[in-house]
Design a binder for these strands. Sequence first.
DNA 1: GTGGATGCCTAAACCCCTTAGGCAAATGCC
DNA 2: GGCATTTGCCTAAGGGGTTTAGGCATCCAC
Lengths: 191, 191
Amino acid sequence: MPRAGLSVERLTRAGAELADEVGFDQVTVSALARRFDVKVASLYSHLKSSQDLKTRIALLALEELADRAADALAGRAGKDALAAFADVYRDYAREHPGRYAAARFRLDPETAAASAGVRQALMIRAILRGYDLAEPDQTHAVRLLGSVFHGYVSLELAGGFSHSAPDPGTSWVRIVDALDALLRDWPAPAP
Amino acid sequence: MPRAGLSVERLTRAGAELADEVGFDQVTVSALARRFDVKVASLYSHLKSSQDLKTRIALLALEELADRAADALAGRAGKDALAAFADVYRDYAREHPGRYAAARFRLDPETAAASAGVRQALMIRAILRGYDLAEPDQTHAVRLLGSVFHGYVSLELAGGFSHSAPDPGTSWVRIVDALDALLRDWPAPAP
DNA sequence: GTGGATGCCTAAACCCCTTAGGCAAATGCC
DNA sequence: GGCATTTGCCTAAGGGGTTTAGGCATCCAC
């Protein structure tokens, strides 16, 4: 019987595809084994556990997202950069819902610290350098942007905006406009 | 052998408590049966399925959230109302992380349409009547607020802001300030 | 070619979900 | 209070998913 040629990388990529097809929480070691026409136990020479598999898929998704964002940001600044980043985020989630869900998978702190998630945070901070925000307002703004991007995309994916006008793409554009305006004129603390 | 006195309501409440203790995705029919010291199969005279249980917990959480929000909104308008609603959301998620996660559980469209989720959407629209927004801007704003509230709370719960200054409560206040300012001066579409 | 490392296998234990069918406790009717 | 019926909880059993232990065949290096 010839060997299947498994490897952590192939398994991770296949897991990511599986996630996009059936949803991240349906990604299972068993399903992956079926996909490679191999017995379940065989995967355990490559993966430590189901958790390990999910973590790897999450890291892959975070990488891909950060790569796309870096591409999109090249040569842009200000609102251009903000809109580009925002679109990367939303588009990625729509193209790869399973991977996007994976990117939200809870990692333990040290794994998270070593992930491409920090690159994303740095890029948001870079975008904010196009606006005039001193600390701690910059951090508040980072958190706001992270919340809006994640929140919107996750509500849209969950079907929260479906079948209702105006279409989600339009709201997205207007929300990015609004965020740009807000960042240009960030209010002082309320009295 | 005396009966345990199970009922759909008791099971749902216990499920919600369990969710807060161990996380919503650790809520399982088996765990619930253990909690009542009863055999697993016994729960199936009360619950159709594991999915059914989760749906019921989700509906409970949506009700509780809507009730709290309605209380908080009574007699308030404008920024007061906005801040009160925002705090209800964040506080509920911090007090009841499992229930909050349950409230994000994906319901099928008709169940969602009959849930307290629509009450929440109506309350956000009511808050926005304190600002001067015509359609379709009001809808854009509803979506923005929903995204920020959900996004922020979910990032905070996921530990995204932990161990980093400024503390998440401060950012929350400033973000609500910023949203208020933005709604008072909602920008026209970009050229 | 042969030795060793590696890859995939069988086997088995454990946990969760779900259905079918049975006995006993609660409920209601007289 | 006695009896029938309903209802609730049980045992039994099948189907997945996860994970570990141990075996044999394949692949690679020499």
